[in-house]
């Protein structure tokens, strides 16, 4: 295979995985810590893209990057206090039903307010255009569109290739978010308490820790990550009410393949699915089932998913 074509396909796989990872991350975080199945996560993404396109169109994109995750955090906390907490002890089927219903309500609400038609989400000036990957800079044509674009040296490719800059940004944002969340849970006192609360909430209450407050923050964090996904993914997936549902199913499969509640599992599964979609693009019949095929194979070999912990969702 031509090394440049291979490089482009790898990059595409990473980028497809990046958006699934961002959405799956919030899902798996809420599931892993609270044991709660949140099918309304796609709806949070929908709220995020509409908020992002509204803020970006009326003010500027940088403000959207700050405001939208903050807004989604608030919505997440309200969502936990108002709805989710009443369902912690109920069966997973009840949780799925209530959140799925909520997702439909949000989708129709957005359609009611903004219409079913797409709202064009224009990229900010600094994020538009191409990025140049080169092994030999002299091969890059001396035109402004390439010369002034962000660039990166890569070995093994021939001459140069270009890729949409924003999608590279999305990959970076996704990786940083995963790392940040991982650090928060592993290396901070808050993370320690949340992880302990997951194991034995009763004991934590005896120790005088406000576990309810921590749980609300966890849901808020999950929603804020959907907010980040919305701001950076919106210009790619575009802004229609149906996007949330379209992304939810593959993202949920990412969580299952990676192992329910595992952050690293979600990341690896997302990249795996992204790569599979990228490399099967020209084989339509395979392309449309490849995600499910991977899920079947992984679950047959490892019923808990790639990095599933013992005792979670069993």
């Amino acid at each position: 295979m031509d090394p440049n074509a291979l490089f482009l396909q790898l990059l595409t796989g990473l980028q497809l995985g990046a958006i699934y990872a961002l959405i799956a991350l919030g899902l798996t975080l809420i599931f892993g810590t609270l044991g709660f199945v949140n099918f309304a996560h796609g709806a949070l993404y929908v709220i995020a893209i509409y908020a992002a396109v509204t803020v970006a169109a009326n003010t500027n994109f940088l403000l959207a990057i700050i405001l939208v995750p903050a807004l989604l955090f608030a919505i997440g906390v309200a969502f936990e206090r108002g709805l989710i907490r009443h369902f912690y002890t109920r069966p997973h089927t009840d949780q799925i039903l209530i959140t799925f219903g909520l997702a439909i309500v949000v989708e129709e609400l957005m359609k009611w307010i903004f219409g079913a038609n797409n709202i064009p989400f224009t990229l900010p000036e600094w994020g538009s255009g191409l990025m140049v990957f080169y092994s030999d800079w002299s091969a890059v044509p001396a035109v402004p569109v390439f010369q002034e674009a962000p660039s990166l040296w890569v070995p093994f490719i021939e001459g140069f290739v270009t890729y949409q800059f924003w999608r590279v940004v999305l990959i970076a944002v996704s990786l940083v978010t995963v790392a940040g969340l991982f650090a928060l849970l592993q290396f901070t006192r808050f993370g320690l308490v949340v992880r302990a609360g997951m194991r034995d909430p009763e004991m934590l209450r005896f120790l005088g820790i406000n576990i309810a407050q921590k749980f609300a923050i966890v849901v808020g964090l999950g929603a804020a990550i959907a907010g980040i996904a919305g701001v950076f993914g919106g210009p790619i997936t575009q802004v229609t009410p149906g996007v949330g549902m379209a992304l939810l199913v593959p993202s949920f499969l990412v969580v299952v393949i990676g192992g329910m509640g595992s952050l690293s599992g979600a990341l690896i599964a997302a990249i795996l699915i992204g790569m599979a979609l990228s490399f099967s693009a020209e084989i339509a019949n395979l392309q449309q089932i490849v995600v499910y095929l991977i899920a079947v194979v992984v679950l047959l070999v490892r019923p808990r998913g790639l990095f599933g912990k013992k005792g979670v969702f069993e």
Binding site: Q9, L16, I236, A246, L247, S278, A281
Partner: peptide
């Protein structure tokens, strides 16, 4: 109803 066409564009 695909949301991302990058693999096809690639």
């Amino acid at each position: 109803g695909a949301t991302d066409y990058s693999q096809f564009l690639t």
